[in-house]
Amino acid sequence: MSESRETALHRRPKGAPRFPEGPAPDPAGSHFERRIRSFQPRRSRVTAGQGDALRRLWGVWGLDIDGQRVLDLGEMFGGLPVVLEIGFGMGEATAQMAADDPSTGILAVDVHTPGQGNLLALAEKAGLSNVRVANGDAIILLREMLRPGALDGVRVYFPDPWPKKRHHKRRLIQSEFLSLAASRMKPGAVLHCATDWEPYAEQMLDVLSGHPDFENTQPDGGYAPRPAFRPLTRFEGQGLDKGHVVHDLLFTRV
């Protein structure tokens, strides 16, 4: 039986990128030092719809974090205030927040290819113009590609808790990261973290409370109620069903 036209069209040389016009496997390459990563790239299965979105929309709303240029967020978002979201999973909450608040731009960063494609598809379906999808290391984005005071907020929802003690050094919310994030945030900008891992929540509260660039929005110095603008995600709902307690932390850049 002869090879189908569809199979022939989708055949690619071994080692060739699956999405030539889409996100690069390692956008920063060897340009920067190899540091301890706070994330693990996941190359799980990309559905047909996600792949189609990556092929068609990456050149419009996507960008690789290569560390080789400084982004003009004003031009990118048409002058809107911009919030950086680090780690967006499958993008449902990001798309909902963007739809609920079209006056704010969301620069959403992740390394999960299916999630990148899913968020692009959701943005197109909802007609969103205030979302951009970035692929790669958020540390390189902050350090190399954003100007001081460029951000009106930073969101870190349910980062990898790295539960084993020997892996705690991989956790994102640490003093060094906070100093870098603060340098790219405007005075008054809010850093919003959320986690369902109790020991990580305690570490977040401790390191944020002790950092000179941030001030807790809660008068009692504790956790914040979940703000209405942060949607209850499917992942969060599963955790709540298991008895997990979700903690929100909202700190202002002083």
Rank of each mutant, 00 (worst) to 15 (best):
M1Q: 12
S2V: 15
T7S: 07
A8P: 11
P13W: 06
P13V: 08
K14L: 12
G15W: 02
P17W: 01
E21L: 10
A24L: 10
A28T: 08
G29F: 06
I36C: 08
R37T: 03
R37S: 12
R42W: 12
V46D: 11
Q50A: 13
G51C: 11
D52I: 05
R56L: 14
R56I: 04
W58K: 04
G59T: 13
V60G: 03
V60H: 13
G62W: 00
G62D: 08
I65A: 03
I65D: 14
D66N: 08
Q68K: 07
R69K: 14
R69P: 13
L73P: 01
F77P: 05
V83P: 02
T94C: 13
A98V: 07
A99H: 04
D100Y: 08
T104F: 06
V111I: 14
H112E: 15
T113E: 15
Q116R: 02
G117L: 03
L119V: 13
L120C: 05
A123F: 10
A126Y: 09
S129P: 01
S129D: 15
N130Y: 04
R132G: 05
N135D: 12
G136C: 08
L141G: 11
R143Q: 15
A150N: 06
L151H: 02
L151T: 08
V156M: 09
P159W: 09
P161N: 05
H167K: 09
H167I: 14
H167N: 14
A181N: 08
A182D: 08
A182Q: 07
A182H: 01
S183F: 11
S183R: 00
R184Y: 09
K186W: 12
G188M: 06
A189Q: 02
V190T: 15
H192D: 11
T195H: 01
D196F: 07
W197K: 02
W197P: 13
W197A: 07
Q203L: 14
M204S: 00
L205Q: 09
V207M: 03
S209R: 03
P212G: 01
D213T: 01
D213N: 04
E215K: 05
T217C: 13
G221H: 01
A228Y: 09
Q238V: 14
H244T: 12
V245M: 04
F251Y: 15
